[in-house]
């Protein structure tokens, strides 16, 4: 592999790190606050320090975890997220490819209609969707949590843009060999799409994991609750239990961080780039 970076001067490297560090620090300020708060005894909530922990009141984590059946809620969230990630990624890769690479009638119009549905506020579609799910007999089931979100315009758009930027020449050879579009998709385009697949899967996961309103509306029994609904036990009608909420929030973020760690491995120069002509 070609080494990309020529030797840089020390000052340049330092400048780069200073720039990146300052930005990174600002990025994580709120996260530091969450961790510090999650480790405070409740009666020091309002007092300094606010950013770096000096207390280590680890009991908050235990108490928070016991405040609701979080093991069950996490399991539900995992099942729901896995279902949404798999379906959204697969279906969106299909559709994104069709929009980017196949000429068909009204292709642009259809895509624009789909894009348009992204612009309707989530709050406006909750009621009709609830009625649909209820009529289908899915109320309080995983079907209600997964199927209505099995497709995503956002992800289709992402895949479409990615396939547009893949050089078309690679496909032409296959086409001349007489391969159909679907075979080209599976044998050539999809294997080249790892970065966008992980990106799309990552955002599907984050969307599913953090969703609150829809699971609230379509589930009823405690056995079907998801983790975000669980977090709301700390945001009481008559006051928020900050220390516990922070502890539970920190725990609830961990799977997202792991998901990101897995995904970011694919953003290494060369994986998709090798073998492609510019």
């Amino acid at each position: 592999m070609v080494r990309l970076i020529r030797k840089e001067s020390i000052t340049r490297r330092i400048t780069r790190h200073v720039f990146l560090s300052v930005g990174a620090f600002i990025s994580i300020l709120p996260f530091l606050w969450l961790i510090t708060t999650s480790l405070k005894p409740p009666n020091t909530l309002y007092s300094a320090p606010l950013l770096f922990p000096t207390h280590f009141h680890i009991e908050n984590y235990i108490e928070a975890f016991q405040a609701a059946p979080f093991a069950r809620y996490s399991l539900n969230s995992f099942i729901m997220s896995a279902g949404i990630v798999l379906t959204q990624t697969l279906f969106s890769a299909f559709a994104g490819y069709a929009f980017a690479r196949i000429k068909f009638k009204f292709s642009n119009l259809l895509f624009f209609i789909l894009l348009g549905t992204m612009m309707i506020s989530n709050y406006a579609i909750v009621i009709p969707n609830f009625l649909t799910v209820n009529a289908l007999g899915w109320y309080d089931t995983f079907a209600a949590l997964i199927i209505p979100r099995a497709a995503s315009v956002f992800a289709i758009f992402l895949f479409r843009q990615f396939f547009l930027s893949l050089p078309k020449e690679i496909e032409d050879a296959a086409k001349i060999d007489g391969c159909g579009k679907i075979r080209i998709f599976f044998q050539i385009a999809l294997p080249l799409s790892k970065p966008v697949i992980v990106t799309s899967a990552l955002f599907s996961f984050l969307f599913a994991w953090n969703d609150f309103l829809w699971p609230l509306i379509v589930t009823d029994s405690p056995q079907m609750r998801t983790i975000q609904l669980g977090l709301s036990v700390f945001q009481g009608r008559y006051g928020v239990r900050w220390t516990l909420l922070s502890a539970a929030t920190v725990l609830s973020i961990l799977p997202s961080i792991v998901a990101f760690l897995i995904a970011q491995k694919y953003f290494i120069k060369g994986i998709a780039g090798t073998g492609l002509k510019g």
């Binding site: 379906t87 299909f94 490819y97 789909l114 348009g116 406006a124 199927i147 209505p148 679907i182």
Partner: peptide, 17 residues
């Protein structure tokens, strides 16, 4: 390729719109 997405989006995005 489009069928699964269009079906689901039709029922759960376009219809509610």
């Amino acid at each position: 390729l489009l069928f699964p997405s269009i079906l689901i989006l039709g029922v759960f995005n376009i219809y509610p719109a």
